[in-house]
C-alpha cells in the first residue's frame, strides 16, 4: 500500500528544518535579547517547523515590528501636543512593554502547538540556549550599534 492520506496540518520538511528550535528559546531570546530579534527569529522558525499557522504568525510578526514604532509615534505626538503630562512618561513605557510581551506571548503559544506537531512527526529542534545567552550578553553592544534605532528594534 503506497498511498497514504495527508492530514492538513502535517508539517512538510523544508530546506531550513535543521535550524528549527523550540519556540520557548525564541520567547526567552525576545526577553533577554530584544523583541525585534525575537520577532525575526519567530518568522524564520515558522518556516523551519513548517507551522500550519504560519500566515497568522507572520502577520503577528509584522504587527509587532510595525506596532512598536507606531506606538512611539502616537505617544510622542500626544506628549508634544500636551495631551499627556510629562509625569506619565515612565508609565507610558509600560504600554510598549505590554504590547511587545503580548505579541511574543501570542506567537509563542501559536508556535508551541506547531512545534509539538513538528516533533510528533520526527522533527528535532536545536538547543537555543547558547544563542539566548549570547543575545543577552551582547545586547548592550547591539544597542550601541543600532544607536537611536535600538529603542524601536530591541
Amino acid at each position: 500500500m503506497d498511498e497514504t492520506y495527508k492530514i492538513i496540518d502535517e508539517p512538510a520538511p523544508t530546506a531550513i528544518s535543521r535550524v528549527a528550535v523550540n519556540p520557548v528559546w525564541i520567547f526567552l531570546a525576545s526577553l533577554f535579547g530584544g523583541t525585534g530579534i525575537g520577532l525575526v527569529w519567530f518568522a524564520i522558525n515558522a518556516f523551519a517547523i513548517s507551522s500550519a499557522s504560519r500566515k497568522s504568525e507572520l502577520l503577528y510578526v509584522l504587527l509587532g515590528l510595525c506596532g512598536t514604532p507606531l506606538i512611539f509615534v502616537i505617544l510622542g505626538g500626544l506628549l508634544q501636543g500636551g495631551w499627556l503630562g510629562e509625569g506619565l512618561v515612565p508609565y507610558l513605557h509600560l504600554i510598549i512593554t505590554g504590547f511587545q510581551l503580548l505579541i511574543i506571548y501570542v506567537l509563542h503559544l501559536s508556535q508551541h502547538k506547531s512545534y509539538e506537531l513538528f516533533s510528533l512527526y520526527g522533527g528535532v529542534g536545536r538547543n537555543g540556549l547558547l544563542v539566548v545567552i549570547a543575545l543577552g550578553v551582547l545586547r548592550p553592544q547591539i544597542a550601541n550599534l543600532l544607536g537611536d534605532w535600538s529603542a524601536l528594534v530591541l
Binding site: M1, E3, T4, Y5, K6, I7, L120
Partner: peptide, 13 residues
C-alpha cells in the same frame, strides 16, 4: 497515534 496512522491508510485507499 497508531489509530491515526491506520485511518490515514484507510483514506489513502
Amino acid at each position: 497515534p497508531a489509530a491515526i496512522e491506520i485511518l490515514k491508510q484507510v483514506l489513502g485507499v
